[in-house]
Structure formats: C-alpha cells, structure tokens
C-alpha cells in the first residue's frame, strides 16, 4: 500500500481534487475534496485498503464568501491603480477605469465535514473534506462502513448541526439530550 496508489484510486471515483501535501509541514499526506455524493465511495476505497478512522469533524466557513469577494475587489482595485500609475508615468492620459461588474448576491457559505483516516502499517494520513451549504447541511453517513464513525458523527452533529443522512441514532452525544443549539457554529451566541 502506498500513498500514490491511494491517490489514483481516489481520483478514479471522481473526487473533485486529490492533492498531495507536504507531510512534514501539514501532518497529512493526501488532501481530498469530494462532493457529498461521492463521500461513501471514497471512504469505501480507504476501507478496502485497510485504513482506520481517526476522526470526523467540521469547520464552519461563515463569512468566507464575503472575504473572498473583498479580496477579489481589492485585487481589481490594485490592478487598476497600478495601470493608472504606469500610464501617468508614461505621460499618457489615465485609461478610463473599467466599470466594476455588478455583483449579485453572495454565494452561500459552507459547512465543511472533515474526515481523517490513517493506516496502521504505512504512514499515509488521508483527509477527506466535503462541503455543504449552511442552510441545508446534509452529508451521507459512513457509519455503515466504519461503526466507529457513529460517535464521531454524533459529536459533529452536536457541534455543527451537520445532518448525517442515514445515521441510525443521531441524538446528542456530548451535549445535553435536549440541546437544540450547535456551539461551534461561528454565529452561535450562548
């Protein structure tokens, strides 16, 4: 078993991106981005290769789209400014600034589910990520493949409200049994 072979197999199922990362700097070898529909297939590949499940968790990317747009606008502005300065230096009349394209509604921010897998024999930690919209966070469960994912998914549901579709027993694990809040969401206010 080696990481390159795993990379090939994961690419074959149509993962959106399979990137090799620098292990010494990041702590994991493969960074895999899949669509929620491909998650079960990707995890099955790892199961067949003898990986064990390390953890399941989430990340709330609230405000990411706004930040990305701001970054893009700053870039456009900087380019326009550089152009104007270059033109001024050359003694030409400043070019008319291109009208900024009207931007529509911001795309919705995402919740990310992150799965870590490791192998008992060889050093190849694989991180699988899948993104779902914040308003409808539904990810298929992998607890039928790895029963150990059961608790991890319940914990992630507690903290982020990600719904693991098909999970047999998605009730609070660490939070009180009547908890209807998700403390790790960035807009959570106690």
């Amino acid at each position: 078993m080696n990481c390159a072979a795993i990379k090939q197999k994961l690419s074959a199922i149509g993962a959106a991106a399979v990137n090799e990362t620098e292990y010494g700097r990041k702590g994991f070898a493969l960074d895999v981005q899949v669509a929620p529909e491909q998650l079960v297939a990707a995890v099955s590949v790892l199961d067949a290769e003898g990986f064990f499940i390390e953890a399941v968790t989430g990340v709330d990317w609230l405000g990411e789209q706004a930040a990305l747009r701001k970054e893009a606008e700053a870039k456009v502005a900087a380019e326009a400014k550089a152009k104007a300065e270059a033109a001024a230096a050359a003694g030409e009349e400043a070019p008319v600034a291109e009208p900024v394209a009207e931007q529509g509604e911001l795309p919705e921010d995402a919740l990310e589910a992150v799965y870590d897998f490791n192998h008992y024999e060889s050093l190849c930690r694989v991180t699988i990520r899948t993104r779902v919209p914040r308003s409808k966070p539904e990810v298929p469960t992998i607890s039928q493949i790895y029963p150990g994912a059961d608790w991890h998914e319940r914990e992630t549901h507690d903290f982020f409200g990600i719904k693991f579709v098909g999970h047999p027993y998605l009730v609070p694990l660490l939070l009180p049994e009547d908890a209807d809040y998700h403390p790790l969401l960035k807009d959570f206010r106690p």
Binding site: G50, F51, F52, I53, E54, A55, Y120, P147, G148
Partner: peptide
Amino acid sequence: CRKYGATGPVCRGSGIN
C-alpha cells in the same frame, strides 16, 4: 480496532504494531 479507530495499548493488545 480498525473499524473503531482504536489505538494505543488497546490495538497493541490485538496484535497491531
């Protein structure tokens, strides 16, 4: 052990190095 992600002495008591 593998299916549940057991590590440490628990997996080493099951023959996993």
